[in-house]
Nucleic acid binder design. Structure first.
Length: 565
RNA sequence: UGGCCCAUGGUGUAAUUGGUAGCACGAGUGGUUCUGAUCCACUUAGUCGGGGUUCGAGUCCCUGUGGGCCAGCCA
């Protein structure tokens, strides 16, 4: 479909996978996985991570697994498991029947822990959290051994079994790997493997009261599933030695972990904590607010999944810190939408136009092209009569020479309809323009050029006043005015001072062409000359349609005006 | 007085693994157009500094500088 689809670039990960196949380090199939923790909604950053693993599995004719990393029941809920699956399906990710849960492996993990205890590689520590922290040392100084480090295997076995049996309260005991308290890598300073958590788990309910830590669960889960390449973000680089330590000590399938940099995007953020703050303080309506960086938010906003996928594919993968311009996302979105979005006409800020020489009471059904980029999209009928609405900004009383739209005495084309000429401007007592009187040229039906060779520069969209459907339209812009929203502006210590007060503008009394009353959720339309819009999946009703602006069209005229001052 | 990772136009990312620095976005100019959209053409601008190895270095080595990550019983 796109260049990126047919000729994937050989980034360092794909290169490594190819090398591993060639060297025989791994036999096919290549197996990858996406391991979300079910404690939050997926956001655009997750789309990068899934995309990488998913596509690599596809490109190497391998397998892709979805695995929920559900090892901490204090934070995880079934609601998120369901939401994550829904969002992934929307994104176009198909994991077949390869859905797994770290909790599926609790028995196996427990067995391996016993094995490590028996091998003298793990011990039960009775210290408090503070004591353990204190013993860990600092970045620049080594830690000290726990006083419980040299317990006998028998005693460790007994204690660990009693931990599992529920004899101890939360925080009283942990199982630790016996590695090296002086390691320069803090992850190797006797990391905690299990903690006591008397908590109901969304899947295992009350079967367990001890739960494995990420470091003890992740590598082994990968190994159990024969994941060949476990792709994760850079912050896990320091964990790789520990990941490999467990795999080596256990002598199990040696998954290779490879780290890549997360993708940052200007004007966006992905922290769950910050999302919650925005919701709590009422700056957005929820995790699915169309301004949110969540997949649900983007979906409700009208983003299409193909664009999100392609955006990340074109952005590429590397290990360095990055900050991708939001404009890149917009460019991909616009490109996809331009090719696929059905065109419609809607007048956001209506100005009444009366065509004085058009037969009274006559209605014509004009043929309008649904998508000039796609002949198969066909045409539709749009009613035309003597009373219309045009966009208020498409008329100027004192128009500069570069203004191609309507002005007193000037002629323009109404898209797919007729050419009209402005003959008169009607104002109210306050001097506001309330109506335009125009004449039309019957020889320009369908918008075609008249036989006399007259030229016209502007083409306007319009809606029949007698047939229009009223709607609310929500205009969205960046939620933040700063490229890096999380850094407070100068002189402030609150990142919320970066909020864009204009991120949402609500327009009521918008006039839609009648066909839009059949608008479908999850279809993004182009309102010609105005941008891309979609029906709001939450607030729209049959009687009161609500549309969200996904993104504007590029606007050379606005740019020119801005430059001209 | 730690460890690990990273450094290519404004942004993101390539470079046949030591052999012509390319692509995309952005920005700019012109053309086309029944969307001031799309499309087309052209222009713009880069290997962090200093050494070294080599016939040849973005690529290898040393060093400096800059940036990121790590001290949860989170993932």
């Amino acid at each position: 479909m796109t260049t990126a689809d047919t000729t994937p670039t050989r980034d360092f990960i794909r290169q490594a996978v190819a090398d591993d196949l060639e060297s025989g380090r791994f036999k096919p199939p290549v197996v990858t996985r996406f391991p979300p923790e079910p404690n939050a909604y997926l956001h655009i950053g997750h789309a990068k991570a899934v995309g990488i693993s998913y596509r690599i599995a596809k490109e190497f004719a391998g397998q892709f697994h979805l695995r929920f990393d559900d090892t901490n029941p204090t934070k995880e809920e079934q609601e998120y498991i369901d939401a994550i699956k829904e969002d992934l399906r929307w994104l176009g990710i198909d994991w077949g029947d390869h859905e797994y849960h770290a909790s599926d492996y609790f028995d196996q993990l427990y067995g391996w822990a016993i094995k490590l205890i028996e091998a003298g590689k793990a011990y039960v520590d009775d210290q408090t959290g503070d004591q353990i922290r204190g013993g860990r040392g600092t970045l620049t100084s080594p830690g000290t051994n726990s006083p419980f480090r040299d317990r006998s295997v028998q005693e460790n076995l007994d204690l660990f079994k009693r931990m599992k049996a529920g004899e101890f309260p939360n925080g009283s005991h942990v199982l630790r790997a016996k590695i090296d308290m002086a390691s320069p890598n803090l992850n190797m300073r006797d990391p905690v493997m299990y903690r006591v958590l008397h908590e109901t788990h969304p899947r295992t309910a009350d079967a367990w009261c001890i739960y494995p830590m990420y470091d003890y669960a992740h590598g082994q889960s990968d190994s159990i599933e024969s994941i060949t390449h476990s792709l994760c973000s850079m912050e896990f680089e320091d964990h790789r030695p520990l990941y490999e330590w467990f795999i080596n000590e256990l002598g199990i399938f040696p998954t290779r972990q490879i780290e890549f940099a997360r993708g940052n995007i200007t004007y966006m953020f992905t922290s769950k904590r910050r999302m919650a703050e925005l919701i709590d303080k009422g700056h957005v309506t929820g995790f699915d607010d169309p301004r949110m960086p969540t997949l649900r938010g983007l979906r409700r906003r009208g983003y299409i999944p193909a664009s999100i996928r392609r955006f990340w594919e074109e952005a590429g993968v590397a290990k360095r810190e990055n900050n991708i311009e939001f404009a890149k996302l917009e460019s991909v979105l616009r490109d996809d939408l331009n090719k696929t979005a059905p065109r419609r006409m809607a007048v956001l800020d209506p100005l009444k136009v009366v065509i004085t020489n058009y037969p009274d009471g006559q209605v014509e059904q004009m043929d309008c092209i649904n998508n000039p980029e796609d002949p198969d999209a066909g045409t539709r009928k749009v009613p035309f009569c003597a009373e219309l609405y045009i966009e208020r900004e498409d008329f100027m009383e004192d128009a500069p020479k570069k203004f191609f739209r309507l002005a007193p005495g000037k002629e323009v084309r109404l898209r797919s309809a007729y050419w009209i000429k402005c003959e008169d401007v009607i104002k109210d007592d306050a001097g506001n323009i309330v109506e335009l009187r125009c004449t039309y040229d019957p020889q320009t039906r369908g918008g075609s050029n008249p036989p006399d060779g007259r030229k016209v520069k502007g083409t306007l969209h319009w809606v029949s006043a007698n047939h229009a459907v009223d709607a609310q339209v929500r205009l969205y812009e960046h939620l933040f005015t700063a490229e890096d929203p999380t850094t407070p502006p100068k002189g402030s210590d609150d990142w919320l001072d970066n909020l864009n007060p204009e991120s949402l503008k609500v327009l009521d009394g918008v006039k839609l062409e009648p066909s839009l009353s059949d608008a479908q959720v999850d279809v993004t339309y182009q309102f010609e000359r105005m941008g891309y819009f979609c029906l709001d999946s939450k607030d729209a009703t049959a009687d009161a349609p609500v549309f969200n602006r996904t993104i504007t069209l590029k606007d050379a005229w606005a740019k020119m005006q801005k430059k001209g001052g």
